[in-house]
Design a protein around this nucleic acid. Sequence first.
DNA 1: CCCCGTATACTCGGCGCCGGATATACGGGA
DNA 2: TCCCGTATATCCGGCGCCGAGTATACGGGG
Lengths: 195, 195
Amino acid sequence: MTFKRTNPLALAVLALLSERPMHPYEMAQTMRERHQEEVIKLNYGSLYTVVETLTRHELITASAVQKAGNRPERTVYAVTGAGTAELHDWLRSLIAEPAREYPRFEAGISMVGLLPPSDALEVVRRREAAVTEQLTALAVLLEKLAGMGLPQLAWIELDYRMAMLRAERAWLSWFATATGEGTVGGYDSWEDRHR
Amino acid sequence: MTFKRTNPLALAVLALLSERPMHPYEMAQTMRERHQEEVIKLNYGSLYTVVETLTRHELITASAVQKAGNRPERTVYAVTGAGTAELHDWLRSLIAEPAREYPRFEAGISMVGLLPPSDALEVVRRREAAVTEQLTALAVLLEKLAGMGLPQLAWIELDYRMAMLRAERAWLSWFATATGEGTVGGYDSWEDRHR
DNA sequence: CCCCGTATACTCGGCGCCGGATATACGGGA
DNA sequence: TCCCGTATATCCGGCGCCGAGTATACGGGG
């Protein structure tokens, strides 16, 4: 069976191992240091599962079993040729081909008519505030990274995320206003349903 | 153990059953007809699992077992009081509180430096084209729904999605241009790494 | 009247993901 | 020297999700 590109954590593993061989725990540490866990969900349990799966598909191999002092053994892995190929191909398709991902907010907002308009207005405003907070937090982080001398390419994903969050905030602001003024299409029957 | 709000399909089930009692297969049909599967991932296997879980938590109950002709038995479910409360509360938190969702594109673009600049430019342009296609497809669908007399509130999630897609397209366009011109921060070392 | 494709309605095995458990080593304070 | 909190490194049971499989009924063409 061919390798299924499900968990992006596997992508991170391939990327890390193409720098140098590592053992799983070290991969996790490195991801933390580089703020990669902001972008790719990291979970120790999943990490070991992913490493095992990659090994089974011969995209990485156990290159050594170290034993320093009396510490538990640690298995060091290295990327194979097929692994490097997989990394690049996966990366290209990840960027080139948008994938349907079913964001939870879309599910929520699609049912907003189930809430009374006043409640809807309140929760949307709360989200707007939360998004604004995320934006300022990102701006701070970005300031810090740029201050450390990192080039834009090193935090390009944060740039993207900020653009998306700004767009979301603008939409939320519009929707809140339209709901408050009662100018959103279908407002009258919406209000009628809730009395 | 308290009910975990993981699968949004459970939200759809609660919403459908607060209209009227249904059996699982009918829920699926209804979701299809209303284009809900565009927003919430529908899978028969998951549907039955979700229904069972909701039953276990007494958010819905099997209200009847029908047997029409010689067809297989079908179990009809109805929402309980606790279920209605859960629906509203879940909905409110889904809208009010942004959840980290790790979009795959963020993972991809964060590693774009691993590709040579020319390859990066190509795949980003391809995504830009794909996003544009999605936008025109959505515009067509939206035209159709509006033509059927449905109010804006009935397709508000498509409105949101279009706003997000437009923002993404704008960002992709900027990034492609900056990469092509070599004006993205860190371009020189990026190019150097790939010769 | 038979055949076969489609619709109806659900079932089931497998697998990946998660979070908590496990076990040892190290370092600093009392 | 003892204790305990933190770091190191991995393991494992359970569960939810997925997609393919099953079985019957209906309806239209030949």
